[in-house]
Structure formats: C-alpha cells, structure tokens
C-alpha cells in the first residue's frame, strides 16, 4: 500500500471516528424534548394560558409504561410529549392541568399543600382547594412543582375505585376519568430555565419511586423557560 493511500485511509478513519463522536454527542446528549412556546404573539402584560395533562402511561416514547406529562401546543392544540414550555417573564400564567392518572400517596404529605399560586389555592373541577390529603383520600395523582419560586400544587386525580381501575389507556388521553386543575401564578421576572418536577413517587419500580420518569426530562420533570 502506497504512502498516499495509507495517509488517506488514516484520514478517513479519523474523520469517521470524529464524526461518530459528534453524532453521539448531538443525538444523545444535547438532544432534549421539544419546547412548547407560549410567548409568541403575547403582548406585554398579557396572561398566557398553559394547558397540560398527566397520563398514567405514554405511547409517545420508548418507555410506554412511564407516567408522563404532555403539553398542549397553543397554536395547533396538539398534545406534545414534553414538559418543557416557554412563557414570558413576569406574565400571569393560567395553568390548566388534566389529571388522567390515578391517585398515589405522597412520600411527604407536606406536598399536599398548595403554595406559590395566586391566593395560595387551586381548583379541582371547580372546587377551591388549599391542601389535599394524599394518604387519607384518593385525591392526588401527581404534583406540579417549581421549587425555585416555591410553587407547589398537588394534582387532582380520579377519586373512586371504579375510576382508578379504568384509567385512560391511550396517551395523550382524550377521554376517561380525570380531574381538571386550574391555578395561576406570576412567572419570574428573571429570564432563565426553572426546574419543574413532580413530588409523588411515580417512578414505580425504581429506588424510592424517584427514578425512571421522575428523572427523565420531558416525562415527570422538565423546565419552564422564562423568556425576556
């Protein structure tokens, strides 16, 4: 084999390895779930209406038995498998969350308390609540929590045995027993990414219920991106 061929082969092999490494980094490490944008077309001072649902499973990923949030695209009204959404800084955010998943006790019942919303309250199917007892009553499916702004809202769930045995089986859910949560809060004035997490141990089968979907961005953990 001549020297130019050897050098060419070495060069090609080197580029292949570098290209493969770049692909792995971009495809597996830098890729994240989609961001649903609630900022476009919103005038300063105008409220945004964010709509989510949490499902007992999802068919939109390679983990169909993981619980997951979905976010509704404000333009297409299509459900997007993610828990990353963008809101304007300082805007009033009106949240509507459809709770299709069944009830589960919180590891710490303290997170049954509604904090950080306007009025420190929320509504479940129109009824105002300030705290839910997830140990005593079948009432809490998950929580919607943004710790850095002290926001914590226990998510309502179907409440009866029959409902909990007939939960929505196809996600994103469009029918089936569910609870509708509504609450509002003021988005931070400082732009940035704010961690969103659930505090119910819904990573079933994982250590303390906080593995799997609880530590996978786009499932039960995500980010609220605050845009300037």
């Amino acid at each position: 084999m001549s020297l130019p061929v050897r050098v060419g082969t070495l060069l090609v092999a080197f580029l292949a390895v570098v290209g493969g490494a770049i692909f792995v980094v971009i495809h597996f490490f830098l890729a994240g779930p989609p961001v649903v944008d609630y900022t476009s077309g919103v005038a300063p001072g105008q409220a945004v209406n964010v709509v989510l649902q949490e499902d007992p499973q999802n068919q939109a990923s390679n983990h169909p038995d993981w619980v997951s949030y979905f976010v509704q695209d404000p333009k297409t009204k299509q459900w997007v498998h993610t828990l990353v959404f963008k809101v304007p800084a300082g805007a009033r955010v009106n949240m509507t969350i459809l709770g299709y998943d069944g009830c589960t006790p919180l590891r710490n019942p303290f997170w049954g308390k509604v904090t950080g919303t306007i009025g420190n309250s929320a509504t479940i199917d129109g009824k105002t609540v300030r705290a839910l007892d997830s140990w005593k009553t079948c009432s809490v499916g998950h929580t919607f929590s943004i710790p850095s702004i002290n926001l914590n809202v226990p998510m309502g769930s179907p409440t009866t045995v029959a409902e909990n045995n007939n939960l929505c089986g196809t996600s994103p859910c469009t029918s089936g027993p569910h609870a509708t949560m509504k609450f509002s809060f003021i988005a931070p004035k400082t732009p940035g990414s704010y961690l969103v997490q659930c505090r119910v141990p819904c990573g079933g089968g994982y250590v303390t219920g906080f593995g799997g979907p609880m530590q996978a961005i786009g499932f039960m953990t995500g980010q609220m991106e605050v845009a300037s």
Binding site: L106, S134, C138, P201
Partner: peptide, 27 residues
C-alpha cells in the same frame, strides 16, 4: 391514616414501588 378507597386500591404505602417488579424493567 388510610381512607377506604386507598385501602381498596392497595395504596397503603408511599414507598414508590406500586408496580409489579417486572414493570418497568429496572435499567
């Protein structure tokens, strides 16, 4: 501390291990 619905559903633990061991499969 457990209400009747929680007892009927078997939700008397907040340990996080509600699913059968094989579901989901541990990584």
């Amino acid at each position: 501390r457990s209400g009747p619905v929680m007892k009927k559903l078997g939700l008397v633990s907040a340990g996080g291990g509600y699913y059968p061991p094989q579901d989901p499969v541990q990584p």
